[in-house]
Nucleic acid binder design. Structure first.
Lengths: 139, 139
DNA sequence: CGTAATTCCTCTAGTGACTAGAGCTTCAAG
DNA sequence: CTTGAAGCTCTAGTCACTAGAGGAATTACG
């Protein structure tokens, strides 16, 4: 049986975050000691790792909740899980290509000034001027 | 002189967002009609484009505010603008590489199940199991 | 067994960057 | 001059946490 602090230490998830997940219905309501402190078992550790992993992958909590509700399910209901994975993948891809365009532009901006600073800085101008951009980046 | 709605239409920034920027001190306090409605001139349009562009580049509002305060400045104070651009570029690069790793993994997850659903779905398992991952992705 | 340090509890409120809605007023077109 | 769109202020909600207050329980040490 783990205290919330031990659970936190083993998963890297902060203590208030664990309580927050419980409040949101993502973590099961744990047993309590006589003194009202939470005690967790192995399955809670697995659940928390699941949440953490899905969050690392960028899923919003409601998608995580949807996946949790599918745990142990079989049959066509599982299409939902695939949808979530596929959707997230395309969101991610769109995000990546946008960010790459922005990185490219930031590179241009960062080198736009010769460092002399004896004039109005080109960096500021570049931040302000969308029309300088070679590619589109307002997705 | 533009109404807030016209300014919104020309920049693609929503009306409540413009008011929000004003409240945060990013947009200058505009003139008002006798009936208390905001009226904007060209410089407000430029300012809003500046904010929007910097936001598109991922800068938080406080960095945008810092850049705005440097507008028209010359001399060594402008190092700050370069810092902001450089910092943002490296944040962005880190973010991109993390997202790429995640995309890769999501691809694996999305194809982890044969679509039969007559067993416990591998997608769910893959979401839960960090150890399957080939590369590290908890940056 | 006593006490001190640490961890835990609940609750509220704050973050960032908006977004939504209520309830009212003003403006522009016909 | 009326009507409907667009404007106003203000509050509250979103998401995913995070921080702090004020107090109770647990653990470690002597």
């Amino acid at each position: 049986m783990l205290s919330i602090g031990q659970l936190s230490a083993r998963t890297g998830v902060k203590v208030p975050t664990i309580r927050f997940y419980e409040q949101k219905g993502l973590m099961p309501v744990p047993d309590r000691t006589a003194g009202n402190q939470r005690r967790y078992c192995q399955s809670a550790l697995n659940r928390l790792a699941f949440i953490r992993h899905a969050r690392d992958l960028g899923l919003p909590l409601k998608d995580v909740a949807a996946l949790i509700s599918l745990e142990g399910a079989t049959g066509p209901a599982l299409e939902r899980a695939h949808d979530i994975a596929r959707n997230q993948k395309s969101r991610l891809r769109a995000r990546i290509s946008k960010l790459q365009a922005l990185e490219c532009e930031l590179g241009r901006i960062a080198t736009a000034c010769d460092g002399q600073h004896d004039h109005v800085c080109a960096v500021l101008h570049a931040f302000g001027d969308h029309t300088i951009c070679e590619g589109e980046h307002h997705v």
